[in-house]
Design a protein around this nucleic acid. Structure first.
Lengths: 288, 288
DNA sequence: GTGCGGCGTCCAGCATACTGAACAGGTGGC
DNA sequence: GCCACCTGTTCAGTATGCTGGACGCCGCAC
């Protein structure tokens, strides 16, 4: 339809455009570009970049970027550091507001702290988005597993316990649609599932077993167990909770305690009415 | 300066423009408007609003808002819910990236968990921004104080222990500049400081005492203790850490333990090079 | 069934946000 | 000390994103 290629033939001589300037066509290009700027700054948290650098890396005019950056700075979405820009405080505010909009997050914190065994470990809540998991909440146990994901971080669903638990809960047609355009899966460690077929086989195991496992597929020496938590609204994708432990500490008896806790957590988060205090006893039974 | 009033005399008959359509003049209006949309959606987390409602509340053309919302949706900054929009997942990602860019946040989580007494309580980290504190991190203790601030939430500095600790650390001229345009302070409870004079007096107390206190000034029945933590870069505003406890549980002996921990935390976060190595080389008082 | 009011979307014309080059300030190399 | 390079900023012209009205749709009231 549109001639997006062959447009830079004139100037693409020795320029080092890192990002593609595609941007296709938005009816509000300034907004799209602002998003690209935030993404770029978020790639290496803490980095500060000036208008020139941003313009070069995005393949966009310097002036436009400067204008957008100034607008972003006025909003507090980015911060001026000298003449450059870095991520701003309002992002924490908006991120917190988004997390507050997910009812599950609040309840997750409360319920995770009450689990007899799992409350000692790192427990996380994530939501499926395409083929990636976005981590929404984290309960820190007493164990020094500090290499867990930051809140807001995204990881491939195929290498995480949360991701496998979420994918295993999808209807076949939904799963097929998501996997259709995929050739090979991202690989983080030598044990990551590399092929779609291997993933499908694994998902069948997850369905039968009732919980998912990440056996050093994300980080060497670290294992995770995950269970699915259904969304409460039709449009909310499947969530999942996981427990992260060092492989050396994952004895079989401890593991079974943790998985019991995980199922308990999922039950309480799946039916909030029954969790705190029973108020609607028979929702599912047939009417007389 | 700007004729903000009397501008809507023509159309302000029965229209209910909630927000002011000032927007002054930005060189990238679409970005400024996008920010206003996000702010509006963040006001009541979980709310979904269609283009018409957003346009009405912002006093802006419906078409423009629709275009901007579509761009925001493509970026993942907002989510389509039916025909409306709500905050999107990418906000969690960007918020997490911002928090990751603040070195203090990481270390805060590690050090807070190691405090002998305070690790049982709710410990928070915040940064001063104007006359408000933005909460950046929270360590959850075992006590069920669930009415603590969300990460990213902003509270007036004058009613919080973190805010008073941060303000008390400012140079006189800096403090004067921030307080100059202020007539009266925001009041959250009957004990909140209402006047600038009362705040100045309180800040002197904080300086002499070495820590700040919020005695039911933010929430009834809840007290907080706060200490300042200096920023590591010249441009980073002062940070502060606080401990939140129910007033009923704030015995004097427990309180003094907690305040010792707070000073310990501040010492370790102030000088990261010494934090990991030495535990506490008699910085404040000799051991018994 | 029917009319009404509200919604989200589409479209052409205009105002304006974007562009690219020129400017001034700062820095490092030789 | 000087030049060369890169920075961020400014400015006029023009392409283009923004505007307001019209359109089709849906849900509610009557």
């Amino acid at each position: 339809m549109l001639a997006t290629d062959e447009e830079m033939t004139g100037m693409a001589e020795a320029t080092q455009v890192i990002e593609e300037p595609v941007e296709s066509e938005s009816l509000a290009p300034a907004v799209t570009r602002a998003g690209a700027i935030l993404d770029l700054l978020a790639e290496n948290p803490g980095q500060v970049a000036g208008p020139s650098e941003l313009a070069r890396r995005l393949g966009l005019p310097k002036s436009s970027i400067a204008n957008i950056c100034n607008a972003l700075a006025d909003l507090g979405l980015v911060r001026r550091i000298g003449t450059g820009f870095a991520l701003g405080r309002k992002l924490a505010e908006l991120g917190g507001a988004y997390l507050a909009s997910v009812d599950l997050v609040q309840e997750f914190y409360e319920e995770a702290a009450l689990l007899p065994a799992a409350s000692e470990e790192t427990v996380q809540l994530a939501v499926l988005d395409g083929l990636e998991m976005t981590y929404l909440a984290r309960h820190d146990g007493r164990q020094p597993v500090r290499l867990t994901s930051q809140i807001g971080r995204r990881l491939p669903a195929s290498v995480t316990a949360t991701g496998k638990a979420a994918l295993a809960s999808l209807a076949d047609e939904d799963l097929d649609a998501r996997l259709a355009p995929v050739r090979e899966l991202p690989v983080l460690t030598s044990r990551s599932l590399a092929s779609v077929d291997a993933l499908r086989t694994e998902l069948n195991v997850v369905r039968d077993r009732g919980y998912a496992m990440d056996d050093e597929e994300t980080v060497e020496g670290v294992v995770c167990f995950g269970v699915m938590i259904p969304g409460r609204r039709p449009w909310e994708g499947p969530y999942a909770a996981s427990i992260t432990v060092l492989k050396a500490r994952a004895s079989s008896e401890r593991t079974s305690l943790l998985i019991d806790d995980l199922h308990r957590l999922a039950d309480r988060l799946s039916d909030p009415l029954r969790a705190g205090q029973r108020s609607q006893p028979a929702t599912r039974s047939s009417s007389p």
